[in-house]
Design a protein around this nucleic acid. Structure first.
Lengths: 238, 238
DNA sequence: CGACTCTTTGATCCTGATCAACACCGGTGG
DNA sequence: CCACCGGTGTTGATCAGGATCAAAGAGTCG
């Protein structure tokens, strides 16, 4: 079941770390850690370790484990789970697990969804960078705030509105990382995961997607959806 | 419609202030401002002004108005309203409108429910007291925290659970102020107000109360409810 | 006394959960 | 290559919680 069953936040010795964060990385243009190659943030590239592959269900960090690193998704997808509920998804290029800087311990699990690679930023290294560079310190503070905002689970509005805004959120976040791309939004997570995140049953997620399909807003594929009519999705929030 | 239509937070000249905060006040024993006559807080009595009467619907403070005073309910009832929703009720003896100390302006309306008198604590006076007395400063900070907690609207749980916990909350708060009393919980606010506060329709509030009556937990009176079987109410939260 | 407002109660509707049946798909073993 | 199998997604049927609407008491104030 696991290609890498160990917990990676404690040490990376079980996986060959490799310094590989440079302009040739698929996400270099928009990676949050380096903000697309911002000269002020270049040092972040020197401390990163690539870890993986993780496969479906593998835990990257455990609750109450000491906070030893932050992570970015390199490829695949990750979810943050608290008390049995999905509270956040992490897309390629997005940095996370910054929340624990204060408490010194992680407050939730982070679990791989499908085959996933991560970029690991050891705490000791990033702390040192923050002392040398005000730009890096500020950048990480900003990302920490943003992580907190993403984690706040939207529980208001109808099921259709929540599914719609979920798709638009992923659409926008993906666009930010991949650059201007197609209207395709991958949904590698299960319907159960989406339902858990949105506070509804998996059956309802399916039904709401079907409704958006039937009015021509999206097309449903095996591995995600195509946004066919972005405006009609956004119009649901007048 | 109004016995006192002016906005009281700006000035009290339109109503005769009277220094009347002493042991003979009906709520002296438990008033939050003086914490039942705590010697360290006695100076609070010197700065208070009694204002009123206000009648149904009169606004005591307006959103965005400058924060010139905090208040306690002397008699009657008040509600805090934000964006058309009731977010808090204030019982006799309870201090409120501390929230604006930071922002310098009130963030919500406070409206009288029925005929209501208030005790007004001018900002300049309480600020001065806080400089002289660490006890008073600490006390007000504590109350501010508590006000924030009370304002958080409980939106989870079933309608029956929310109504039950609402009654118990008022029951407990009233007991704290009035001392050990009867099982009577006055409900001078309308069913609409309760529904707004609890996030449900007025009809549902009525229905849930009827259900609690039919299983013998409460009796419904014109002006409130009698708690007949406190334990069975609390048992709804296992 | 009469107009008004608020509460109560009944009837109906809507949303989304739950349960069950079925399709689909990838993997496994013969 | 094919039959089988378990997991996941889709879809229909049913159900429960509350909202909404309407009509009938019950105070309340002029």
């Amino acid at each position: 079941m696991s290609t890498a069953s160990a917990i990676a936040s404690q040490s990376s010795t079980s996986r060959r770390p490799s310094v590989c964060c440079n302009a040739s990385c698929r996400h270099a243009a928009a990676c949050e850690a380096t903000r697309g190659g911002d000269p002020d943030l270049l040092d972040m590239r020197e401390v990163v370790e690539r870890v993986g592959p993780f496969s479906e269900g593998d835990r990257l960090v455990q609750p109450d484990a000491p906070h030893l690193a932050a992570f970015a998704v390199h490829s695949g997808l990750a979810k943050t789970v608290t008390e049995g509920r999905v509270v956040a998804f992490h897309l390629p290029g997005e940095l996370f697990a910054l929340d624990a800087q204060r408490t010194q311990t992680h407050s939730a699990s982070v679990v791989a969804v499908g085959k996933t690679w991560f970029c690991r930023f050891p705490r000791t290294a990033t702390d040192a960078l923050c002392e040398h560079s005000a730009a890096i310190a500020t950048h990480l503070r900003t990302l920490r705030r943003r992580e907190r905002a993403f984690t706040r689970r939207a529980t208001d509005g109808s099921a259709l509105e929540r599914v719609t805004s979920f798709l638009l959120e992923l659409f926008d976040r993906r666009r930010r990382v991949e650059g201007i791309g197609s209207g395709f939004v991958p949904l590698p997570m299960s319907r159960d995961d989406i339902g858990s995140y949105l506070g509804m049953s998996a059956a309802t997620v399916t039904r709401m997607l079907a409704r958006l399909r039937s009015d021509g807003s999206i097309a449903i594929r095996a591995d995600g959806v195509d946004v066919l009519h972005e405006a009609s999705l956004r119009d649901r929030f007048l």
